[in-house]
Amino acid sequence: MTASAVGRGRVTQGRVSALLRYQLSLLLRSQRWLPPVLFYALLLVAGWFGGQQYGDSLGWCAGMLVPVCAWLTRTATSAEPDAARSVVAAAVGARTARGAMLAVALGCGLLLGAVGGAFEVATSSAPIGPHAPIATIVQDGLVAVLVGVLAGTALGALPIRGRAAGALALTAGSLGLLVLAGSPVNAAVRQTFTSGQLYAVTSLPWLALVEAVALLAVCAVVAVRAESS
Rank of each mutant, 00 (worst) to 15 (best):
L38H: 07
A3M: 12
A154P: 05
Y54Q: 01
P81S: 07
A188D: 10
G162V: 08
V16S: 07
V66Q: 01
L42P: 00
A94I: 01
A97W: 04
F49K: 02
G14M: 06
M101I: 11
W33V: 06
R21A: 08
T136A: 15
G173V: 05
A70R: 09
V92S: 13
A144W: 11
L38K: 00
G173E: 05
L215V: 10
A70P: 04
A200P: 02
I128E: 10
G93T: 06
V11C: 02
G9L: 14
Y40R: 03
G173R: 03
Y199F: 13
R85W: 13
V104N: 09
I160E: 01
V88P: 05
L106A: 04
V185R: 04
P35M: 02
A100N: 07
V179L: 04
W33C: 06
H131W: 07
A220M: 11
G7Q: 14
L209F: 13
P184K: 13
A46T: 02
L26R: 06
A220N: 01
T171I: 08
T2F: 15
R8V: 12
S124Y: 13
Y199V: 09
L19G: 14
R15P: 01
W60P: 00
L110F: 12
A114E: 01
I137R: 03
I134L: 10
A46D: 08
L110S: 02
P35V: 08
G47W: 05
L19Y: 00
R161F: 13
T192K: 14
L19S: 08
A208P: 05
L177M: 04
A214V: 15
L19Q: 14
R74F: 11
S125M: 11
E227Q: 11
V138A: 06
L27C: 05
F193W: 15
G109C: 05
C108Q: 05
A18H: 14
L177T: 02
G109S: 04
A151T: 13
G129F: 13
A122R: 03
G7M: 11
